[in-house]
Design a protein around this nucleic acid. Structure first.
Lengths: 249, 249
DNA sequence: CGAAGGCTTGATAGACCTCAAACACAGTGG
DNA sequence: CCACTGTGTTTGAGGTCTATCAAGCCTTCG
């Protein structure tokens, strides 16, 4: 917990620009504008709820560190995780133009977030088309990921879904500078993995055993190492085009 | 095919404004700007492909009449429908800021579409913040629908999924002025219904029989009538909040 | 009238879920 | 230092939901 405060705050101020640059090239001027946004920083503990369905937030939330998720709770009490959010991302960017939350957001690990007033972001967008386009583009990429999840949930087997999810998360963590060496500090329980893939905990466990048995992955605690990247992408039918990474055009 | 051309063209020119007004209030001036967009009209036959995964379109497509869908094809040949698009909607609005299509778009019925150059839409957005916000907002609502589909595919039974889809499509068709009296001119085969809900044709057929047997719906050809709206919403766990209709705030 | 596409039905198989219990591990308090 | 506790993981057995296969039927349309 004894982080070098000054350095950390500097990095924090730049986190949105860095996050957007995963997908979009920004000018130094644009990044300066983003650094100037007023933020207040908050620390979340695991499972802490940031927003709930029906809320009408006035601030957007930028993830500085840790992992957050969006989720929906169904009538029968079942939970479905809709999305994962890593450092540099804004889980509730849609709040800029939709007043009421149609899902909840909570922390999955200890996490630090920066709260930014919607008003400040809207004014910035109005005055700076390049930044507005970058933010819009980011919301479109979020939607592209939703589309891939729809395909995954609708047409992939449990085996394929989990393999695909690991591929996606590794690629995104890697692009965000959080993972390297094919090792993914995932921090998810098998229960949460099930809520994301529409499977039961028990079945997630058995699929993970299968993936380990085939020497595609290794798990140590809640960290996943990918032993055979090509094999895993084949198992999940993973093609990163839908992530629209800057490096991939 | 002998439509009254003049009247039709007038309505066509206004279709984008009318479509956006389903979710967002526009000024008369904004609608005038939208009417001034350069468009070229094209007629599609059922199953005709408009765009394929990997394409880099230069025009956006506005649906004037008929039904279109977005879909993904998986490695094993399985198909998942990602979204349905009705009159007034723009299936590939994400193309404004994402250069490469990550999914395909095709017509499900005979359909008329208007092609609008991306460049014209971008310039319009740059010069008119209200219209830009309306377009952005529409892409965010598309994403909200994706989120609901993720929850549906992940956590609802076949029975709930189909009931929910019928509720959603009736609500959207109704908002678009295409359906009324709880009768939905759906025009989908059971095969297509299965591709949207991640189910086999055979199972879709059995679920429809169940819904009919419970007097929730009636089908005549490819038209669905909802006999018991409240019962159907309960069967599907349907709450229209996620559609962010203008009338609902 | 024939052909094609879509709908319906039955039988069987398999994927995945539920329930229940044992096990592993980290954190806590005595 | 060691029970104790709680959370998460693993295992087994049985059941349910949904897929697959195969065939017959019905409607539409040329």
């Amino acid at each position: 917990m004894h982080e070098p405060i000054t350095q950390s705050l500097t990095a924090d101020c730049d986190r949105l620009g860095v996050g957007l640059e995963v997908n979009t090239k920004l000018s130094e001027q644009d990044r300066a504008v983003l650094r100037a946004l007023p933020i207040s920083i908050r620390t979340l503990v695991p499972d802490q709820i940031l927003m709930e369905e029906g809320d009408r937030p006035t601030h957007a939330c930028l993830v500085l560190s840790g992992l957050l998720c969006s989720h929906k709770v169904l009538a029968d009490g079942g939970r479905q995780i809709i999305a994962f959010w890593v450092a540099g991302e804004v889980p509730d960017l849609q709040g800029l133009h939709l007043s009421t939350m149609d899902h909840g957001i909570n922390a999955l690990s200890t996490a630090r977030v920066a709260l930014v007033p919607h008003q400040a972001l809207r004014e910035l967008s109005a005055g700076n088309p390049a930044v507005a386009a970058a933010l819009w583009r980011k919301t479109l990429i979020d939607a592209a990921i939703y589309r891939e999840w729809i395909a995954s949930l609708g047409r992939r087997s449990a085996y394929g879904r989990i393999a695909h999810l690991i591929c996606e998360l590794y690629t995104r963590f890697h692009a965000a500078g959080i993972a390297s060496d094919h090792t993914l500090p995932l921090g998810l329980t098998q229960d949460e993995l099930g809520d994301a893939t529409g499977l039961s905990t028990v079945h997630v466990n058995r699929i993970l055993q299968q993936l380990r048995g085939e020497a595609l992955i290794r798990t140590r605690g809640r960290e996943v190492s990918i032993l055979d990247w090509f094999g895993l992408t084949r198992a999940g039918g993973f093609d990163p085009a839908y992530l629209h990474l800057k490096t991939a055009g």
